[in-house]
Amino acid sequence: MSLFTTQIVNSLVLGGVYALLSISLTFLYSVSGVLQLAQADVMVVGAYCGYLTTLLVPNLVVGVLVGTLVTGLLGLAIYEGIFRWMRNSGHLILVAGLALSSLIEESLKVIFLSGHPVAYGQRVVGNGSSLGFQLLLLGLAVAIGAAFQIFLMRSRWGRALRATADDHETARLLGIPVNLMVRLSFVISSALAGGAGVLLAVIFQYITPFIGGQIEFTAVAVILFGGLGSIPGAIIGSFILATSQVFATTYLSSSYQDAITFGLIVLILVFRPKGLFSVSREVRA
């Protein structure tokens, strides 16, 4: 396989994981109005759960399932403990997210050996860089994303969630239990992030409590590119960013890789503040 093809596959896999995280963020935002800045740390919790599970049962799918389940419950706890009490709190919601992020990181650090990398065992992962394995990961990411999309578009609950995202008041008038939907959005989005976390740990071949912080910023930038609240936008944004990161590392000086990512983010936001695919609207004063 040529270097170029390998990079394409790498970009797709990384993009798939970014897409899961940013879908989870943008979905949560559109239903609940909360930009949950600790979502990437929920993802890391998922990664650890997957890791611990595969120590007992050497099967990646079981790992993903357990990771999803645990983070779904964590999402419920986060909603009941914090964000339920913070409607319309403006910037303070961001601060709560940051503090939660640091709380999760520090807890993981205390539990798992002060932040030493934890490698996935060979027996689970096999040869992590083989094409077949990469495609398996991509397939898993696509499967999770597709399951979510089908749930949203086809099921009764999915319709109710989309109605809630559209307008809380109207949804309430139509008899949709809005508070339940918001709670549900926390559970589902956290589970989605958790699933992505298991895959991410496999791709990176290590986990530390701190990988969340590095990815969080990227994920938020990605959902802004795509237009806040837009799932297709989040997916396309993820692949653009992942591709640029993978290719920048390969073909340009890797030490300045991050500068390229950030530069791209700043440029896109400055020139397309409403997202890459927005159309200009009339000003209503």
Binding site: L228, F262, G263
Partner: peptide
């Protein structure tokens, strides 16, 4: 550079610039 931006977009764009300085 970010004069036209508001909300989260300016937060992330300005943080991105800060990150470029750090890198």
């Amino acid at each position: 550079l970010t004069a036209k931006l508001r909300g989260l977009v300016i937060a992330i764009a300005s943080l991105g610039m800060a990150e470029i300085i750090q890198v």
